[in-house]
Simulated scan of single mutants.
Amino acid sequence: MSLTLLTRLADIPASQWDALTPNEQPFLRHAFLNALEESGSVSRASGWLPQHLLWIEDGAPRAALPGYAKSHSMGEYVFDQGWAEACQRAGLPYYPKWLSAVPFSPVSGARLLGDDAAAARLLRALPGFLDAGQLHSAHINFSDRRMHPLLQQDQRWLLRLGCQYHWHNPGYRDFQDFLDTLTSRKRKQLRKERQLVAGQGVEFIWYQGAELSEAQWDFIYTCYANTYRVRGRQPYLTRLFFSLLAERMPAAIRVVIASRQGHTLAMAFSLVDGETFYGRYWGCLEEYNRLHFETCFYQGMEYAIAHGLARFDAGAQGEHKLIRGFEPVLTESWHLLRHPGLHDAVARFLHQERDGIRAWAVEAREALPYRLSTP
């Protein structure tokens, strides 16, 4: 039995890696993570150095923990920059650190993959890996509940809560069926927003991955990159990533493109599995009133209803989602900080923060637009 470091996902067959993943969620599949690496979206140069961990028994991988050595905290959506700044002021090193997460995507799900017993042994070996690699901390972001009992019993790991907003489809017949569950005022607001977009002559067409041409992918990437450039930032993903993903897992890709009089304006890129619609990236080249809400939310909600998907995960942050029916959902991340003083200070902070996050999740439900209760 041994812990093995994998610095290129291409060095393990896709069939072996995917056999360890617990469900259809696309973000941990070999095709997705390897496309990030081969496209240069994650690399030493980008500050995301692949360092996946495998637990090998009898010559075969029995468990895995995808991960990256990080020289910064960008693209993670669990914000620890304050901890890094405190270390800098105290003259302590914070980077490099090790992170298990889906790069650039705050989606909750499995992190520790494979057989339960082997996965537990891998997790117990992780602190030794940090010591050997001179990594100052480990972070497991947006993990599923499977990891909770394993990590909770080890006092070195600290729990951090977050709050996202997800929309749930209990089996609506159509969008009007959803609107009928809202208060009159909120129902009128959503209708007005959709009518404003339609009144400007904007139309929408849905595509699966295999249906998109390279010219359309150029447009999609231009829109995606523009959301960063208008804020003076560089996009995380490269253009090549989208082509590789379209080639390797096209069935999971959904893109809606907005146009007006034959001229393309905006797009929203999403992924799907058997039960969930994952809204990921959006961008526009021209601004139209309420175009963002229609493209990113209402189109996705309609798609989920039409295709029987039970949940719409629209990503991080965004309290504006509440009045459109997206409910607060708590997320979990775990942090192992090797310096005792930093560990103790962060533990005190997280104890207070967890109380605040839980209170906010309760308070946020008061902003939901449903008449009596959420569906």
Rank of each mutant, 00 (worst) to 15 (best):
P13Q: 11
R29P: 00
E327K: 13
L368G: 03
E38V: 04
E76I: 01
G114T: 02
L99Q: 00
A90H: 12
G262I: 11
H139R: 12
P170S: 12
R146D: 01
Q195V: 10
L28S: 01
H136L: 14
F297A: 05
L322C: 14
L237M: 15
G279D: 06
A35Y: 00
K186I: 06
R146C: 01
D115S: 10
E332F: 11
S15T: 13
R89I: 08
P103M: 02
W83P: 01
L54Q: 00
K186M: 10
I56W: 03
S213A: 12
D131T: 05
H335W: 08
A310S: 11
Q81P: 04
Q261V: 10
G308F: 10
I56P: 00
E193L: 08
L20N: 05
A367M: 11
Q261Y: 08
F32N: 00
S270M: 01
A110G: 07
T295I: 09
S73W: 03
A10M: 09
V107G: 00
L159I: 07
L291F: 10
A367I: 05
A19L: 08
Q189F: 04
L122T: 00
A10F: 07
H168A: 07
D180L: 11
T7S: 08
L92H: 11
R187D: 09
G109N: 04
R324I: 07
R173K: 13
T264D: 13
L309M: 04
G67R: 01
A118S: 15
P127C: 12
R338E: 13
C87A: 13
G232M: 09
L158G: 04
D154Q: 15
H339N: 13
L291M: 08
E302R: 11
D144L: 07
S100K: 03
L123F: 13
L150Y: 09
F175E: 11
Q134S: 13
L237F: 12
A90R: 10
P66Y: 00
A345F: 15
G67W: 00
C296L: 08
R233N: 08
I323R: 09
E247N: 06
A110V: 10
S143D: 05
L54I: 02
L309W: 03
W167D: 01
L368T: 06
F175K: 13
G67V: 01
D11V: 12
N226R: 14
G162A: 04
F242P: 00
A118N: 12
E203P: 06
E211L: 09
A118G: 14
D58F: 07
G262E: 06
A132I: 08
L179A: 09
S137A: 11
Y303A: 02
S270A: 04
T4Y: 13
C163K: 06
E366R: 15
A45W: 15
L190P: 02
I205H: 09
D116N: 11
